[in-house]
């Protein structure tokens, strides 16, 4: 008889487990896909510079000896509206001495130059990825995306979507600090 009672309570138990999962699901963002490149070396690439904004960059520029510090790689485009909201944070970090490289994604050079003239240039160097091929090597699937690369040239973190709130910015700075360890 005991076994029977347990048997009939099984659907309820199963549903309780399901409800817990569903509740956890509410807090998750199904659009946020984790990077496959975390803790892997940054891909091999070289990107040409944006005319009038200095030369481009490549894999070797990201790690020692070219850079003794952790670097941030930000994928942006002038047509990307969330990038505009993120831009002030990048400017502030650049002032704080964070090294930021920019990958200009599928953009028109004129638009990109106007953007930098209007909003300021937080980037140490900018690489132009007109056909998005290098961005695919980085596993980029939307703009903006922001990577943290450590001294050895390994990708440590990827932020998908814009950093637009103080909380997000603080969290990202903590990731930079962690990568410096």
């Amino acid at each position: 008889m005991q076994a029977r009672i347990v048997l009939y309570a099984l659907p309820l138990a199963g549903f309780i487990a399901l409800a817990v999962w569903l509740a956890m699901g509410l807090g998750m963002d199904p659009r946020n896909v984790p990077s496959a490149l975390i803790d892997k070396p940054a891909p091999d690439f070289t990107l040409p510079g944006l005319d009038g904004a200095g030369e481009g960059f490549g894999t070797a520029d990201l790690r020692a000896p070219a850079n003794e510090d952790v670097v941030v790689v930000n994928v942006f485009a002038s047509w990307c509206i969330p990038c505009r909201a993120e831009h002030p944070y990048l400017m502030r970090w650049a002032e704080d001495g964070v090294t930021i490289y920019g990958i200009n994604y599928r953009d028109k050079p004129d638009d990109a130059r106007n953007w930098l003239a209007q909003l300021g240039n937080p980037y140490k160097r900018i690489g132009v990825d007109a056909n998005a091929r290098v961005s695919i090597d980085w596993g980029v699937y939307g703009v903006p995306e922001t990577f943290i690369v450590d001294r050895s040239g390994h990708i440590r973190f990827k932020q998908v979507g814009p950093i637009t709130t103080p909380d997000l910015a603080r969290a990202f700075r903590e990731k930079i600090a962690a990568a410096r360890q």
């Binding site: 984790p34 496959a36 490149l37 695919i136 090597d137 980085w138 596993g139 699937y141």
Partner: peptide, 8 residues
Amino acid sequence: VVARYGDF
């Protein structure tokens, strides 16, 4: 493709 974007 998986190397860049994961099993997802």
